[in-house]
Amino acid sequence: MSKQPRNIPTDRQLVDPVLGGDTPAFSEIISMTEGLVAQIVCKMISNEEDRKDIVQDIYLKVFHYLKGFRFQSKLSTWVAQIAYNTCSSQLQKRRLLLHVLPDFDMDGESLSSGRQHTVRAAEETDDSILKKELTGILQAQIGQLPPLYQTLIGLYHQEELTYQEMAQITGLPEGTVKSYLFRARKMLKEKLLSKYKMEKL
């Protein structure tokens, strides 16, 4: 039987006081879900001022619709769903959800001029890349991905969510989530190898 760690409140312990009228208890829900919400909002919305408004909007929705939460999913997943829907409707207004920056090639093919090229690049870079440098370069490359891909990468590789949870949050079929993640990784790998190849030259 799995035990709930003592210092992490259960979803019921978080929700019930708020529904009982203890509004300040809502700050606990914010602190428990803020990281996940940041993962979505920061990847989907680039402007800091817009983020502020959107985060407010998200948590006010969470507060007002909390009595509709049925405990059928994790509270964090439900909050993340609201965050994703709020951000995506914002992006859809501007048609930016799957928008890609000009430097990136969505099919990822033209970046690699063949298998041998990437193989050599990998061999050359394996030893020379410092982890810190890699993190910085990757961060910049991730920033060029479409907002949806950035979000999925963050949710999977940093928040360690399952495909099922990610599908729940985004409303996409699990297969689509997997496919988008696969494409995002492929694009990043090729971009990374291409960058190091260029630097070596």
Partner: peptide, 9 residues
């Protein structure tokens, strides 16, 4: 290398 870099973001 990529997966490692992604998890260390």
């Amino acid at each position: 290398l990529l997966m490692e870099g992604l998890s260390q973001q």
